[in-house]
Simulated assay, not measured.
Amino acid sequence: MNIKDDIKNAVEVMKRGGVILYPTDTVWGIGCDATNAEAVARVYKIKQRDDSKALICLVDSDVRLQRYVRNVPEVAWDIMELSTKPTTVILDDAVNLAPNLIAPDGSIAMRITREAFSKELCYRFQKPIVSTSVNISGKPAAQNYRDISPELLEAVDYVCFARRQEHKPHTPSSIIRLQKDGKVEIIRD
């Protein structure tokens, strides 16, 4: 399957409220429409994860990020621009997202992806996409397609074809929390 059709299929599934598995700029991700509370609830259920633990969202651009976070601090742009590896930033004042995706304190974990497939997927979908590692909560993340358990492959509505043959090490993103008072906290390096 070509990449254009793969992305089109994934977008159609998410528009219908479905859940997908897809390669990202880090490990393989479980994804859905970040504005659809029912789809987000399904992701929590598939991962067997407590919904009090936040999920990451991917976007394709700084413009899109600003539609879902009320006030992005200047330091966030510097961190994302200067990072040498994929970096997720936890920002306050999330808006226009599924309520069960936003942390109790009003924050959301967002990352602008630069990897070709996930960036194009986000661009074509025109909304943030949930991006949580493909694994049961507490188990190792699937770095490559071949690491994904049959249980998880069967739990979703669509599995992307892109990068299925790839076999190389991938690591989760760095996570940095930016507080309203300007404090920067490294959650995961």
Rank of each mutant, 00 (worst) to 15 (best):
N135M: 12
R49I: 04
T24Y: 03
H170I: 00
I176G: 07
I102V: 15
I112W: 10
P73C: 04
N135R: 08
L65M: 15
A142L: 03
A109W: 06
K168C: 14
K168I: 04
V19K: 07
D93K: 14
V159E: 00
C160T: 09
A141C: 10
I3T: 13
T113D: 02
C160H: 01
D6W: 05
K180N: 14
I187A: 13
C122G: 05
N36E: 00
V40F: 12
E120T: 11
V27K: 01
R64D: 02
R124K: 13
H167L: 09
I129E: 03
K47E: 08
P140N: 11
D25G: 05
I148P: 05
Q66S: 15
A162F: 09
K168P: 00
Y158E: 09
T88F: 12
T88H: 08
Y44F: 15
D50T: 13
L121H: 11
A76Q: 00
Y145M: 03
N36Y: 06
Y22N: 08
D62G: 14
V134M: 03
G31T: 08
G106A: 00
M1L: 13
S173W: 06
I112R: 14
I46Q: 02
Q48Y: 01
G18Q: 10
R64Q: 15
A109D: 01
N2R: 01
I148H: 09
S52R: 14
V156W: 06
V75S: 11
D147A: 09
D25E: 15
V63H: 06
L82Y: 08
V89T: 14
S107W: 02
I129W: 06
V40N: 09
T24L: 07
D51K: 14
A41R: 14
L82S: 12
K4V: 15
M1Y: 08
T88R: 03
I30W: 01
K85E: 11
D92M: 13
F117S: 02
Y44S: 01
D51W: 08
Q179V: 00
E38H: 12
M110P: 00
K15I: 12
P172S: 11
K45M: 12
D157P: 10
V130I: 15
K8T: 03
P128I: 06
A41W: 00
I56T: 08
S173G: 12
K183I: 10
R124H: 12
R146A: 13
R49V: 09
W77I: 02
I7P: 03
P128L: 07
V69Y: 06
R64N: 08
I90F: 09
D25S: 07
A37D: 12
Q66G: 02
R146F: 10
I186G: 02
D157V: 06
H170N: 14
T26D: 05
S118H: 08
V27D: 01
I30Q: 01
I112D: 04
E81Q: 15
P86L: 10
Y44P: 04
N135F: 07
K45I: 04
P99K: 12
V156T: 10
W77F: 15
